[in-house]
Computed example of a mutant assay.
Amino acid sequence: MDKFRNKYKIGSHRLRNWDYSSNALYFLTIVTQNRECILGDIIAGEIKLSEMGKIVENEFLKSFEIRNELFLHAYIIMPNHLHMIVEICHPGNESNDLIDNVQSHGHNVESQGDNVQPYGYDVEPHGRAVLQWQSIKPNRPVRLPKSISSFIAGFKSGVNTKIDDYIDEHHLPIPKYNKQNHFFQPNYHDHIVRNDFEYQRIADYIIQNPTVWENDKLNHKK
């Protein structure tokens, strides 16, 4: 994780030419600004959410109530970040196995950082990603509706609003959040889940994340 103007930031890992509104399973990580541990504390291997952490969880779960195309498979809120596996499955375009959407189909596409392992993994990267090309549209310089980016943007906006309301209600002596003062880092990490083995490995990592917090790469206090 790099620094820019003395602030931690996640570099872009968007996969070139992948349509992020496509039916697929996505492993996502969102980190608080400056990796500040304001979402809760790890106590005896479990997360105890702060009041702000509870607001974040409520807004996060609400996203899946208002978005028909979005489904939650697994998530964990950590002191300064969220891990999740989410699925995009547009009504009328279902598949018995959405992982088929990212299986081999004769075209090699080099991942631009997408082969980075989930935090804490001690395995070799898979290298070049082989993706099904038939339904993939090139990325556009606009945010596609019903996509991963629109979900993340809506979630972050809702968190900013609710956290600001909390700051006002409790007269907290801290700056409010806006476009110049983000609650979360502007970017996020994404990884397209390619097969059942990878899905299970990532799901296990999410579940076990609180138990390895002391050695977590995002724990700047270690």
Rank of each mutant, 00 (worst) to 15 (best):
N68G: 15
V56M: 14
P79K: 03
E59A: 00
N23L: 07
G53T: 02
V31I: 11
E69I: 09
L82K: 06
G40M: 14
V31R: 03
L70G: 13
A44M: 04
N93M: 05
A24C: 11
M78A: 11
R35N: 11
N80M: 01
I42D: 12
E87A: 10
N58M: 03
Y26R: 01
F60I: 11
S95N: 07
E87N: 09
A74P: 08
V31F: 01
L25K: 03
E59T: 04
P91S: 08
I38C: 15
I66E: 10
L61K: 14
L25F: 10
I55D: 00
S95D: 13
I85T: 02
I76Q: 15
R67P: 09
G53F: 05
I77K: 12
H90P: 00
K54E: 15
E65N: 13
E46D: 12
I88H: 02
D100F: 08
L72P: 05
A44W: 02
Y20S: 07
T32L: 01
N80E: 03
F71D: 07
I99L: 15
E65H: 07
L72R: 02
H81V: 01
E51A: 13
T29A: 06
P91W: 01
T32H: 00
H83V: 00
Y20D: 04
N34F: 04
S22V: 04
L49D: 04
F71Y: 13
V56H: 09
M52H: 04
C89M: 10
A44R: 09
D97N: 15
H83S: 02
G53E: 08
G40H: 09
K62Y: 07
E36P: 03
L72H: 07
K48T: 07
N96F: 14
I77C: 11
E36F: 03
G45T: 15
I66N: 06
F64N: 11
L70Y: 06
E65K: 14
A24R: 06
E94K: 09
Y75L: 00
N101S: 13
N23R: 08
I77R: 12
L28K: 00
M84L: 06
V56S: 08
L49R: 02
G92E: 04
S63F: 00
I85Y: 08
K54Q: 12
I38M: 11
N93C: 03
C89Q: 13
S63D: 09
Q33R: 01
D41L: 08
T32R: 00
